[in-house]
Computed example of a mutant assay.
Amino acid sequence: MVLGTLCQQLLYPTWSAELIPLLDSDMQTILEYVRLGYVLSEFDLDCTYECSVLSIGEQQCVAFASLLLSKPNSVLLDESTSALDEVNKAHLYCLIEAAGITYVSLCCTRTLYD
């Protein structure tokens, strides 16, 4: 998560003031897609906020929203859904598949030994 506005976070790393008017409705739609539409009732897109006001799971959803807006051809995901339940994980992966983004997702399972 970068410091700045929610809009800057969603457009990271390609943030540009010229893009904001063009993508304003896209950003709102993408937040709905990743099930974070309610965040807009708490924060405007151009509201500066500390990323710590969002849970880790919400931060991960914002990262997926940013990914969907930037539309890369491929992406390497490292622990990108570790704070989400199985339903939301599956939902986010379906979104990036539907967007035509090829991905490799890494996850770590931990085993505790006595």
Results as ranks from 00 to 15, higher is better:
Asp78Asn: 02
Thr14Trp: 13
Ser80Arg: 05
Tyr113Pro: 00
Ile30Trp: 05
His91Thr: 05
Leu112Val: 11
Cys107Gln: 07
Thr111Glu: 12
Ile101Met: 03
Glu86Val: 15
Tyr103Trp: 03
Thr111Tyr: 08
Ala99Val: 02
Leu76Met: 04
Tyr93Ala: 00
Ile56Asn: 04
Arg35Ala: 13
Val62Trp: 13
Val62Ser: 03
Val62Cys: 09
Tyr12Arg: 05
Leu69Ile: 15
Arg110Glu: 10
Glu58Pro: 09
Leu69Met: 14
Val62Gly: 08
Gln60Asn: 09
Cys94Val: 03
Ile101Arg: 03
Cys61Thr: 07
Leu67Val: 09
Glu42Thr: 08
Lys71Leu: 15
Cys94Asn: 11
Glu86Ser: 11
Ile101Asn: 02
Gln28Ser: 06
Val62Gln: 07
Thr109His: 05
Asp24Leu: 13
Thr14Asn: 15
Leu106Glu: 00
Asp46Phe: 08
Tyr38Trp: 14
Leu10Gly: 02
Tyr103His: 06
Ser70Trp: 15
Leu11Ser: 09
Thr109Asn: 07
Ser25Glu: 12
Ile20Thr: 12
Thr111Ile: 13
Ser41Val: 06
Ala90Phe: 08
Glu32Met: 05
Glu97Asn: 07
Leu77His: 03
Ser52Cys: 01
Val39Met: 11
Leu69Ala: 13
Ile20Ser: 05
Met27Gln: 07
Leu54Trp: 12
Cys47Glu: 10
Ser70His: 14
Asp46Glu: 15
Asp114Gly: 04
Leu45Val: 11
Leu69Arg: 06
Tyr38Phe: 12
Gln60Ile: 04
Gly57Tyr: 06
Pro21Tyr: 13
Glu42Leu: 12
Leu68Asp: 09
Ile20Leu: 08
Gln59His: 11
Ser41Pro: 05
Glu58Asp: 01
Asp24Ser: 10
Leu76Gly: 02
Val87Asp: 03
Leu11Cys: 10
Leu95Gln: 12
Cys61Ile: 01
Arg110Ala: 08
Thr111Gln: 07
Leu3Glu: 07
Asp44Gln: 10
Ser70Lys: 14
Glu79Cys: 01
Pro72Ser: 14
Glu42Trp: 08
Thr81Asn: 05
Leu84Asn: 02
Asp26Lys: 08
Asp26Cys: 13
Leu69His: 12
Cys108Glu: 05
Arg35Met: 05
Arg110Tyr: 05
Asn73Asp: 15
Leu92Gly: 06
Cys7Phe: 00
Val87Arg: 02
Thr48Gln: 09
Ile96Val: 09
Val104Glu: 02
Ala63Leu: 08
Tyr12Glu: 00
Glu32Gly: 06
Leu3Gly: 02
Leu10Asp: 01
Glu50Tyr: 05
Ser52Ile: 00
Cys94Ala: 14
Leu3Met: 06
Val53Cys: 09
Tyr103Lys: 04
Gly4Lys: 04
Met27Leu: 13
Asp24Glu: 15
Val39Arg: 10
Pro72Lys: 08
